[in-house]
Write a protein that binds this DNA or RNA. Sequence first.
DNA 1: GTATATGTTCTACAATCTAGAAGAAAGGAG
DNA 2: CTCCTTTCTTCTAGATTGTAGAACATATAC
Lengths: 109, 109
Amino acid sequence: MSRDTLGSFELLVLGTLAHLPSGAHGTALMARIEQRHDREVSVGALYTTLDRLEKKGFARSEWGEPTPQRGGRRKRIFTVTAAGATALGRTQVLLQTLTSPPVAAREGC
Amino acid sequence: MSRDTLGSFELLVLGTLAHLPSGAHGTALMARIEQRHDREVSVGALYTTLDRLEKKGFARSEWGEPTPQRGGRRKRIFTVTAAGATALGRTQVLLQTLTSPPVAAREGC
DNA sequence: GTATATGTTCTACAATCTAGAAGAAAGGAG
DNA sequence: CTCCTTTCTTCTAGATTGTAGAACATATAC
């Protein structure tokens, strides 16, 4: 989909990220996806997708403050951009168009 | 997505096909997608996807009766299988989970 | 016969999906 | 101090999907 459409995993990632207004770093996001959607996600899959999303302008990442917590290591914090939110909305509309009329056939009614 | 998830284009195709209880042949389906979703679809993209969908068991195809209409040429009629409907439902659920809580952040409220 | 129309199949390459190993760096154990 | 563990991110690479357009039939119109 070289259009402006989100791939299915991209949608999952960006959609989940959208629930976290203050953003999230990769590993936390991964955990969140696994929890909420009961599916495993590999680190590689996640970061690759996040990178792509960022390259497309749907997500943005910044290096967080060196947390006193984890030594001085910074985390890469991802957030959804305005364009990302728009893309999400577009997908939502598409999905509605797709599913609003009866999804399954019912011959026997 | 070697899971049981539908890719985005697969979803578009299968979802549109699901609206046609009696099935549809490739070209008609293509036209339908273009109308309803205002995007172009190439023949190749469509048939390739339909073939893959069939291989996965989400769609089925049969050769229609030789229509007196178009000479004697048969059309390949595609329909959604039960497994396909299930997959569609799964995707629907996923999308709901994804979009039910606030999708966009609203800091300024 | 040649052109046109309607459908389907083939070929090929680009983009996305996915997994797992590798790298980096702080803190704790011995 | 060196090694091991923990937490995160980056790299590498192969499998799946997405996409386009040419090539193939084959019936009807000229």
